[in-house]
Amino acid sequence: MLKALLKSEVIISAICAAGALYLFFETKAFGNLNVYGAKLGPDIWPKLILVSIMALSVGLAYNTIKGVLKGIIPASDKIQFSAANLRFIAAAGLIATYLALLPLVGFLVLTPVMMIAFMYLLGEKSKTWIFSIPFVLTIGVVLVFTKLMYVPLPRGTGIFLKISHLLY
């Protein structure tokens, strides 16, 4: 029984159901608006979805537990911490850092740095590629997007703003 409860599907169902329940109370914030005698107010549709999510989660959990108990589904997944997990965390962390710094440092300066780090992370060996592609691509993207299509890519602040202004 305990093994069945630790199955990832069951855990995900529990998270979904709990989240849906929380959001269900959140609908109170906009449930009382009454415009033109609205019978289908802004809260009805989200409530309907949230109830469905809760019902479906219960269904999924029930099916999984039943399956494990009957022995058709292998019991708990082996969750082990490995180098692979580390690589995933590094990649996600790199992306998050990149996005957080983008408004401060600007696209032009930060992007090659991120790309070089990313290529190392993915195990690229060739130095020539690692130190050429990021710069070529960044400058190409900046020129096409800002000069041709007027997309205002983040320029950064302070000294980085001045560097960005050199090109766009």
Binding site: F118, L122, E124, I133, L137, V141
Partner: peptide, 14 residues
């Protein structure tokens, strides 16, 4: 992919 992946990510971002 070790070169292409980061490039795809840059295009995804812009």
């Amino acid at each position: 992919y070790s070169i292409l992946g980061p490039c795809i990510f840059v295009f995804a971002t812009v």
